[in-house]
């Protein structure tokens, strides 16, 4: 346990150092600040964020602040750029050749798109769970251990055993797999695989977990388990989730951002961002109201 703690401490990022001039330059454009208010609590904040795939603009001028230890849901019709926005938050988009990002994503005040920021470090602190469960073709144990190993973890076997157990427990999977840790991760059911992927993501102690429609490939019971898990995890992590499922957004999230295509530019933008309660009960924008009440989308 002690070793595990040391590891977490040593991983404290240099990234936290705040760049003053960066703040000043971008601060002026951050008009969304007042929307949610508690700026001090924002872990991640996008400022005038636009993402292009080649010449195609996928999202434009997104300014959102994501609150610590809260679940924020991104909703909106298909193709409106929810996943693109989510993947911009840990620089996953740039794995696709020809992607260009404008604006800023502030993580504790540091712009993740600054030239001195290493995307590998970013993804270590801002983890991700994908739409389709994607465990590695390795044992359940190694699926969890992999993230630590590639991040230079040096510790005893028993310390690793502890981290694996703790991660699986936190992902509410331990009781189901404790007797078969050597079996392939891919041999589990879809819902178990997705919880394994969550365990894998939290094993390296990220601060933020991005979830890209994590339940869309799962049955209702497995979905419920993941949602319960999210409610547990949010005590320690900040969660941002893309979902097509209105009930899911309403059930699990604290804040909701409604996205839509801009009819002129054909790029996705945030049309309304507020607490989930407001979005689902008294939205200000007619389009949000239509969408959450199932009248289109």
């Amino acid at each position: 346990m002690l070793e595990a703690r040391c590891y977490e401490m040593s991983a404290m990022p240099t990234l936290f150092s705040l760049k003053k001039q960066e703040q000043d330059r971008l601060g002026a454009t951050s008009h969304q600040e007042s929307l949610i208010g508690e700026r001090a609590e924002a872990v991640l904040e996008t400022q005038q964020l636009s993402v292009f795939y080649g010449n195609f603009k996928a999202i434009q001028n997104v300014s959102l602040a994501f609150q610590r230890n809260k679940i924020t849901a991104l909703i909106g019709p298909s193709g409106c750029g929810k996943s693109t926005l989510l993947r911009a938050l840990n620089r996953m988009n740039e794995l696709i050749p020809g992607t260009r990002t404008e604006g800023a994503v502030l993580y504790h005040g540091k712009n993740l798109y600054d030239p001195d920021v290493d995307p590998v470090e970013v993804r270590r602190r801002i983890g991700m769970v994908f739409q389709k469960p994607n465990p590695f073709p390795k044992s359940i144990y190694d699926n969890i251990a992999f993230g630590l190993q590639i991040n230079g973890w040096k510790g005893s076997k028993s310390a690793m055993d502890e981290i694996v157990e703790r991660s699986l427990r936190r992902a509410a999977l331990w009781d189901e797999v404790k007797d078969k840790l050597k079996q392939l991760g891919t041999s589990l059911s879809g819902g178990q695989q997705q919880r394994l992927c969550i365990a894998r993501a939290i094993a390296i102690e990220p601060e933020v977990i991005l979830m890209d429609e994590p339940c869309s490939a799962l049955d209702p019971i497995a979905t419920l388990k993941i949602e319960e898990l999210m409610n547990e995890l949010v005590k320690q992590y900040t969660i941002i989730i893309v979902t097509h499922n209105m009930q899911q957004a309403a059930r699990v999230s604290d804040y909701t951002a409604m996205m839509m295509l801009n009819p002129e530019t054909r790029a996705g933008e945030v049309i309304e961002y507020d607490t989930t309660e407001v979005i689902f009960t008294k939205p200000k924008d007619k389009r949000t109201e239509d969408y959450v009440s199932g009248r289109f989308g």
Partner: peptide, 15 residues
Amino acid sequence: VPRGLREAAYGLGAM
């Protein structure tokens, strides 16, 4: 090899 596997590894901070 599915792209999802690569993304999973990149998402964990793999080089």
